[in-house]
Simulated assay, not measured.
Amino acid sequence: MQYPQIERQVIALAGGTGDLGRYIHEELVKDGRFAVALLTRKASAANPTCLPHTTIHPTDYTETSLVSILNTTGATALISLIRCPNSDYIPLHKTFITACLSSDTCKRFIPSEWAGDIEKFPDIPISYGSTRAPIRKYLRELEQKPGRPRLQWTLFNHGWFMDYFLPPSQSYMKYIQGEFPIDVGSWTYTVRGTGEEPQSWTAGRDVARAVCELLGSEQEWEEVTYVCGEWGTFNHTAEVLERFYGRPFTRKTRSLEEINSDLRKYESQPEIEDVGVVEVEQHQVAGATACPKEKTLRQREKYFSNVKFMSVEEMLTVAEREGRV
C-alpha cells in the first residue's frame, strides 16, 4: 500500500541489524510514514544495507545514552529485537523502558518477545518465565503508578518464522542447528512428540509489515498482539514441502519422553542459563508456538487488514520465483 509522503516518524531499532531486524528496517523505510534510528554497540558500524531514511547511533545501552539518542532523533517508538544472555534481558529492557519514559518523544515500546501464545503459556519456553515474564509484570505495574508518564506498549508474537522452511540463501533468517525440526540443508525432519501438535508460522517480512501497520495505527494497542500466516502441524507441512520439491524427507524421531527427561535435567540445574534446543522442543510439543486463532484473526481485522499474509506454499512459490522472500 502506498502512503502519502509526510514527515516521517522516527522508529528506534535495538538489534535492527539482526534477522528480523533487517526485515523491519527495510519495511519501515519503504513505508512513507517512517524513518529509522538504528542503535548499535559498534562505534564503527555503518548502515549495512545502505538503506535510505536511516541514521546510525552507537550506544552502550545506558539510560543516558539512550535518552540522548531518542531526544536527538525525535524517535516516537523503540523496538527491541535483541537476543541477549538471559541475565542481561531484564536490566536491559528496564533501561529501555526508563529511557522511553524519560525521553521527550518516545512513548511507545515493543519489547523483545517474538514468540507464540504467551497468554496460555506464559512460562514457555523456560527462559521466558525468568526473563520476559518479569518485564511483562513490570510494564503492567507501571500503568498503576499515579503521576507517571504513560508508555504505550505491546508484546508482539507470531509463532515460528516460516522462513526456516527455506534455504538460508532465500531469507535473512539464519538457521540455528537443531532448533527447527525441519532441516532443508540435510533434508531431514525430526518428528518431535507426535508431529501433530498445533503450530503457527509467519513469514519474517510479513511480521515486519505488520509491525509497520501497528506503528501507523491510530487505534489503542492491546497488551498482546498476534499475527500468523498459517496454522498447521509439522507433519502436514513436511508433506507440503515434499510435494513442492518432489523428494521425501529422511525422518528421525524425538519422543515426548526423551524431551521431558532432558527438561528434568535442566530443572535440577538452575545455574544453567541457556537450556538450548530442549526449551525449543518443549515450546513446540506443548503447542505453545500456535498463536490463539480467534484473537489473532480479530486483531488481523483490527490492525492488519492492509497486510496479505503468506501461507507456506505461497512463500515457497515467491522464493522460487524471486530467489528470496
Rank of each mutant, 00 (worst) to 15 (best):
S255H: 07
Q299L: 09
E294R: 07
V280I: 08
L263P: 15
G195C: 06
L297Q: 15
Q219R: 10
T237W: 12
E301G: 08
C228L: 01
V191C: 12
G323D: 05
C228I: 01
V211W: 02
T233V: 02
A286R: 15
L256C: 10
V307W: 14
T289R: 07
A290T: 05
T289M: 14
E223L: 10
G204W: 05
Y303N: 12
E279H: 04
A290D: 06
M310G: 04
W221P: 00
C291R: 01
R324C: 09
I272D: 09
W201K: 00
E301K: 15
G204R: 05
T317Q: 14
E196N: 14
R192K: 13
S268R: 09
V278Q: 01
K265C: 05
W187N: 08
E273S: 09
G216P: 09
E301C: 04
N260E: 15
S311F: 07
G195R: 00
A288W: 12
W231T: 08
G276I: 00
S268P: 05
C212S: 14
A238W: 01
V318I: 12
A288S: 15
L215P: 02
T188G: 04
Q219C: 02
F234P: 02
E196K: 13
E301S: 14
K308H: 14
G204K: 03
R251A: 01
E230T: 04
Y189S: 04
H283M: 13
T202P: 15
G229A: 03
G216F: 11
K302Q: 15
H236C: 02
W201N: 14
S305E: 15
G287H: 07
S311P: 03
A203D: 10
F304I: 03
P270C: 06
G193A: 05
E257I: 03
C228D: 02
E267K: 12
F304M: 11
S217N: 15
E230D: 12
N235D: 08
P292E: 05
K293N: 08
A290G: 03
L215C: 12
K293E: 13
V240C: 10
F234L: 15
E314Y: 13
R324D: 04
E197M: 07
A208G: 06
W221F: 07
T317P: 03
K293L: 10
D262L: 07
A286F: 14
E313A: 10
V207G: 10
E301T: 13
R300K: 13
V277N: 04
E273F: 05
C291K: 01
R251F: 03
R251Y: 07
K302T: 14
M310H: 06
V278R: 00
P248M: 06
A288H: 13
P270K: 02
D206L: 07
L297S: 11
R247T: 09
Y266T: 00
S261H: 10
K302M: 15
T296C: 14
A319H: 02
Q199T: 10
E257Q: 11
K252L: 11
R192N: 03
Y226M: 03
L256D: 09
E301F: 02
P198S: 09
E322N: 11
K293H: 11
R300W: 04
E220F: 01
Q219W: 02
K295S: 09
V318F: 11
D262G: 00
F309N: 04
C212Y: 01
L263T: 10
R205D: 08
F309Y: 11
